[in-house]
Structures are given as C-alpha cells and as structure tokens.
C-alpha cells in the first residue's frame, strides 16, 4: 500500500504553502496556510493527477462546489470519498 490519502494530500498542500508537511495542521484553512485561489486550483490539479480522480470544483464558487475545502481535514475526507468512488 502506498502512502495514505492523508499523507499525500498534506504533501500537496504543503508544497503549495511552501511549508514542511509537519507544519500543516489538519484544522488549518487554506487561508491560514497562505494558499490563494491560484494555489488552490493548482492543488486541485495535483490531487487529480495523484489520485486519478475528477475533483468537482469550480473556482467561481468554491463554497458551492461539491468538494469541501473548509480546511485540510475536509479536503482529505473529500479526496477519500473520491478515491473510494473511483475504486482506485
């Protein structure tokens, strides 16, 4: 088994935030991590490439997207769901 979803999502966010993975707190919001809208779109792309999934995310209204980006934990949970649904 490769690294867990959590480890890999945190690595993706840490890269965008220019932080060490150990500094990425599960409760942290994207804003707290200093990830702006461009950074978010890039992170979503990295998630899609890493997990071979389609992330339902529209930058026009992130809060209305089916992908919950409230904090790190919610994103991990959302990716878990996508991975399970894709059967990867």
């Amino acid at each position: 088994m490769a690294q867990s979803v959590q480890t890999r999502v945190i690595a993706i966010l840490a890269e965008q935030a220019l932080m060490n993975v150990s500094e990425v707190n599960l409760e942290a919001t994207l804003e707290e991590l200093g990830i702006d809208s461009l950074g978010l779109v890039e992170a979503v792309f990295a998630i899609e490439e890493t997990f071979d999934v389609q992330v339902p995310f529209n930058a026009n209204d992130p809060s209305d997207s089916k992908f919950d980006i409230s904090n790190v934990q919610s994103m991990i949970k959302a990716v878990d769901g996508l991975v399970a649904a894709a059967g990867n």
């Binding site: 779109v41 995310f57 529209n58 930058a59 026009n60």
Partner: peptide
Amino acid sequence: GGIKAWEGLRVMS
C-alpha cells in the same frame, strides 16, 4: 487544446 487549457483554470461554466 484551446478548451482543455481553459478547463484547467476551473472558471468555465
């Protein structure tokens, strides 16, 4: 390619 590039930005309806 022209549409795929814009898709990537996630600002398309």
